[in-house]
């Protein structure tokens, strides 16, 4: 079982490389393993019932897809601000916006993440910090988890586009850092977001 999964992963990986070499644009259907990290959940414990996992993401637009119940997502690396200089300007126009109470990437936002992936491919020396933010309509603890989930969803998308997961860090601020302090839909829509901060190694 485990072997067949690894083989399948290798096959997909090889396919990506092959297609990449011929210049075809490919949106990977399955998650790409992060180098040096095992994608599957290991250890004991109860996997979440598959029928419920299948429902997750349903009705959320084109990004809703069947999730392998054995795979939980991409473990993030620990963000250490002491090791890099933060550049908030370069990718400021690629801020990704979310629907209320959702962490799914909307089709309208995919192009931004693809541009960020392109930037990371042409600048192999930098990393990126993805900040997840929420509007004020959720409760505070809930929003902290939702913001993290949004950041992780963007990170997963970048990894699926071929970016090394070790270059992509996540952090959540919940509703603690709104860009617009207003209490209306216009403000909330601006606050439900994922921001990209370029990380350059300290000189």
């Amino acid at each position: 079982m485990k072997h067949s999964m690894i083989h399948r992963g290798l096959f997909v990986f090889t396919l990506v490389l092959a297609l990449g070499a011929t210049g075809c644009k490919l949106r990977p259907k399955g998650p790409t393993p992060i180098p040096g990290q095992r994608p599957g959940v290991t250890g004991t414990g109860t996997a979440f019932p598959p029928e419920d996992v299948g429902r997750v993401g349903a009705g959320e637009g084109p990004t809703g897809r069947q999730i392998d119940p054995n795979l939980q997502g991409f473990p993030p690396g620990r963000f250490d601000p002491g090791r890099s200089d933060q550049d908030r300007g370069t990718l400021a126009s690629y801020t990704v916006y979310f629907d209320f109470d959702r962490s799914a990437i909307k089709s309208s936002e995919r192009g931004k993440i693809e541009s960020v992936a392109g930037y990371l491919k042409s600048n192999p020396g930098v990393g990126v910090l993805v900040e997840g933010h929420c509007d004020e309509r959720g409760t505070e603890q809930y929003n902290l988890s939702l913001g993290e989930h949004r950041a992780l969803a963007i990170r997963e998308y970048l990894v699926n586009l071929g970016i090394d997961g070790n270059r992509v860090y996540t952090i959540t601020f919940g509703e603690d850092k709104p860009v617009d302090p207003g209490h209306n839909e216009a403000a909330w829509a601006k606050n439900r977001r994922g921001e990209f901060v370029v990380l350059r190694p300290k000189q």
């Binding site: 959940v41 473990p75 993030p76 963000f79 902290l144 988890s145 993290e148 989930h149 992780l152 997963e156």
Partner: peptide, 24 residues
């Protein structure tokens, strides 16, 4: 790595429940 939050201590003071995102 990731989120460490929402700590809650068991009534006997021995264990801590919390939210972590280290597995993705």
């Amino acid at each position: 790595p990731g989120l460490n939050a929402g700590a809650a201590v068991s009534p006997d003071g021995r264990r801590v429940a919390m939210v972590l995102s280290k597995n993705g």
